[in-house]
């Protein structure tokens, strides 16, 4: 047992309390936006909470854009790669993504499995995560190389792992979410619960709620499968815009201390969106699930 405990990954992650993997079978249901919100909300949950966010979507990294960190380089230190801090000098929200390693943002990463596997191993084993309360891992769609590699490399710290499944209410997405749930069962990954995203859209002119991608499917699936339903999030254009254009325009020329103010601004702007309080409830549910798991 002790020998399996002593992999570089296990050593790096030994001071991480909880590792939450955000999964969804289908693409574009909001994994990255949920991961970002989860990281922001967890960071806000306590003044000392330290949160990391790791983007293992290697061929389509979105996290840097969403956190407004596009174009930041990753630094090497004697103790491994230094993650990019979204909140600057406060250093309570660290982030790592393949997006930081690309020279140009439109460069494509065309990799087959073995290279992806190696990259993920480096993300887990070579990044100086330090002490974290939560490490949120954003994954690509599907149940393939990235997911298997993640689980494999983190096998020594399996007791810290848990997953959140994101879906949208349509049948097509639920079908894939179901596959994803089968995956978690096959690899015995505990599921904290299910989030239904893009559930309804409020028309900005008349306030009428349209179910763009239908509604209620997630809750129904959670009940059927005995999953904890964490909550549903409507389509929030304000949030879409915030995460899409999070890049502060003047940041490039500013010194790191000013940049920290900017990133903090992202947090403040996030907390003003109508989704933030809804997500707060989801995070409360996640805490309950995490607690429940400890007891079991």
């Amino acid at each position: 047992m002790t020998s399996t405990q002593d992999t570089p990954v296990a050593r790096r992650l030994q001071h991480v309390k909880h590792i939450i993997i955000v999964l969804s079978g289908k693409g574009g249901v909001g994994k990255s936006s949920v991961s970002t919100q989860l990281a922001l909300s967890l960071r806000a949950s306590s003044p000392l909470a330290r949160v990391g966010i790791l983007d293992v979507d290697l061929t389509g990294p979105s996290i840097p854009r969403m956190l407004g960190l596009d174009g930041h380089p990753v630094h090497q230190s004697s103790d491994g790669w230094v993650p990019v801090y979204a909140d600057g000098s406060e250093a309570r929200l660290s982030c790592m993504s393949v997006g930081f390693l690309l020279k140009k943002k439109e460069d494509s990463v065309v990799w087959r499995g073995p290279k992806k596997n190696a990259m993920i191993r480096q993300f887990l084993g070579d990044v100086r995560w330090g002490t974290l309360d939560y490490l949120v891992i954003d994954t690509p769609p599907g149940t393939s190389d990235e997911h298997l590699s993640l689980l494999e490399h983190m096998a020594p710290v399996h007791s810290k792992l848990s997953a959140v499944i994101v879906t949208t209410p349509q049948a097509v997405a639920l079908l894939d979410a179901m596959k994803c749930l089968s995956f978690t069962r096959a690899v015995s990954l505990p599921v904290l619960g299910l989030i239904e995203n893009m559930s309804g859209y409020v028309c900005p002119c008349c306030g009428e709620i349209s179910n763009v991608f239908s509604t209620g499917g997630g809750e129904e699936m959670a009940r059927r499968e005995g999953l904890h339903f964490l909550g549903s999030l409507p389509v929030d254009t304000e949030l879409v815009t915030l995460l899409d254009a999070a890049e502060p325009k003047e940041q490039e020329s500013l010194s790191p201390s000013d940049a920290s103010k900017d990133s903090f601004a992202l947090m403040q702007r996030y907390q003003r969106t109508s989704t933030a309080p809804l997500f707060g409830k989801i995070v409360a549910e996640i805490f309950r699930s995490l607690l429940g798991e400890r007891e079991q």
Binding site: Y201, C203, C205, E208
Partner: peptide, 18 residues
């Protein structure tokens, strides 16, 4: 763009910010 079935007003769910 999204056309509200109620008021026929068009809005952008996913804004083309760039």
């Amino acid at each position: 763009g999204f056309v509200c079935p109620n008021c026929k007003g068009e809005s952008q769910i996913f804004k083309p910010s760039t």
